[in-house]
Computed example of a mutant assay.
Amino acid sequence: MSQLNIESNREKSLNLKAENVWKLGNYSSISTMLPPISDHLVRLADVHSGEYVLDVACGNGNTAITARRKGANVTGIDITSDLLKRAAEEEKIALLDGIIWKEGDAQNLPFEDESFDVVLSSFGHMFAPQPDLVSKEMIRVTKKGGKIAFATWPPELAIGSIFRVNGKYLPKKPDAPLSPILWGNPEVVKERLNGVSEIYFERGTALFPILSPGHFWEFMSTNYGPLLKTIQVLKSQNSVEQINSFRDDFLRVIEPYVVENNIRLGYLLTVARK
């Protein structure tokens, strides 16, 4: 049995449309954790001025804007229209213009074959319910010799641990999509990007300031869509005890990553050449 099958039997995520999940909470607040990772990704992908770059599941535009500041011709695509509106605002704040913001599905990219020199994603594509389709689409729209590069959360580190806890409190459905954090496992990534000519992995750690683990719970449980959805489910069951248990488990798993009033957010970068 492949690593992919082993992990998929162990962890499932709730079968929800991505756009519904990300309309909960405040993704703009959550995205304040991400700019250093976007910079690392764009540098590792060696984005150059004049290149055509696609940011898949771009959210409110952190990575697209970072690539545009390098002089690239950038398109950002996301399934959530509200996030695209915010991305356009962020572009103006950055004193930039020229980014094309487009609503669309990462599993069915509305672009011709081999349209882009570089295809990027920062923790976005990993939430699409059909990872094999996302992989094929990202490869399809990349030019021969071009690069596919993305950031994901490893299952064994802070955010991956939060996802495992979150999954523990969700209804178990036999048709639920695979867990997003499988994209943080290099062996799974190799399997999903089968057919690329080369692949490289690099790890990094971002520091996000917090006063205490309890403050991070407060921040995530009021802003982060997947956690908010789980809390909604538990509230609908009138399960105060389960919500308290959820919080306690969350605090337990993040405690090892809290250092000097920061939480250490370990991430995985993948760069593949078509």
Results as ranks from 00 to 15, higher is better:
Thr75Asn: 14
Ala158Trp: 10
Pro131Tyr: 01
Lys85Glu: 14
Ala87Ile: 02
Phe111Gly: 05
Arg69Ile: 09
Ser135Phe: 14
Gln130Cys: 15
Thr80Cys: 06
Asn166Arg: 14
Pro131Ile: 03
Phe127Leu: 04
Pro155Lys: 15
Leu83Tyr: 13
Phe111Cys: 05
Lys143Gln: 13
Asn166Ala: 14
Ile100Pro: 02
Arg140Asp: 09
Glu137Ala: 01
Ala87Cys: 04
Ile159Pro: 00
Asp117Gln: 09
Lys144Asp: 14
Asn166Gln: 15
Phe163Gly: 01
Ile99Tyr: 01
Asp113Tyr: 04
Ser115Trp: 11
Pro129Gly: 13
Gln107Arg: 05
Arg86Val: 07
Lys143Tyr: 10
Gly160Tyr: 02
Asp78Ala: 01
Ile148Trp: 03
Gly98Ser: 13
Ile79Asp: 11
Trp101His: 11
Lys147Ile: 12
Lys144Gly: 14
Leu157Gly: 07
Ile148Lys: 01
Gly104Arg: 09
Gly71Pro: 05
Ile79Leu: 14
Glu91Tyr: 10
Val74Trp: 08
Val118Cys: 10
Ile162Asp: 02
Thr66Gly: 00
Phe150Glu: 03
Pro154Cys: 06
Phe111Gln: 02
Asp82Gly: 08
Pro131Trp: 01
Ser122Ile: 11
Lys147Thr: 14
Pro131Met: 06
Pro154Asp: 04
Lys143Ala: 10
Asn166Val: 13
Arg140Trp: 06
Pro154Asn: 07
Ala87Thr: 05
Ala88Asn: 15
Arg69Tyr: 07
Ile65Lys: 03
Ala151Thr: 07
Ser161Cys: 14
Gln130Met: 14
Glu114Ser: 12
Ala106Arg: 01
Phe116Ile: 09
Lys70Gly: 00
Ala128Gly: 07
Thr80Lys: 00
Phe123Ala: 03
Ser81Met: 09
Trp101Leu: 08
Thr75Trp: 15
Glu114Pro: 06
Ser115His: 12
Asp117Ala: 04
Lys85Val: 13
Pro155Arg: 15
Ala88Trp: 14
Ile77Met: 03
Lys102Met: 13
Asp132Gln: 01
Ala72Arg: 08
Ser135Arg: 13
Val141Asp: 10
Val74Asp: 13
Arg69Gln: 15
Val119Ile: 06
Ala67Lys: 03
Ala151Gly: 06
Ala158Asp: 12
Ser115Asn: 10
Asn62Cys: 09
Asn73Phe: 07
Ser135Gly: 12
Leu133Asp: 02
Thr75Met: 14
Ser81Lys: 11
Pro154Thr: 04
Ala64Ile: 07
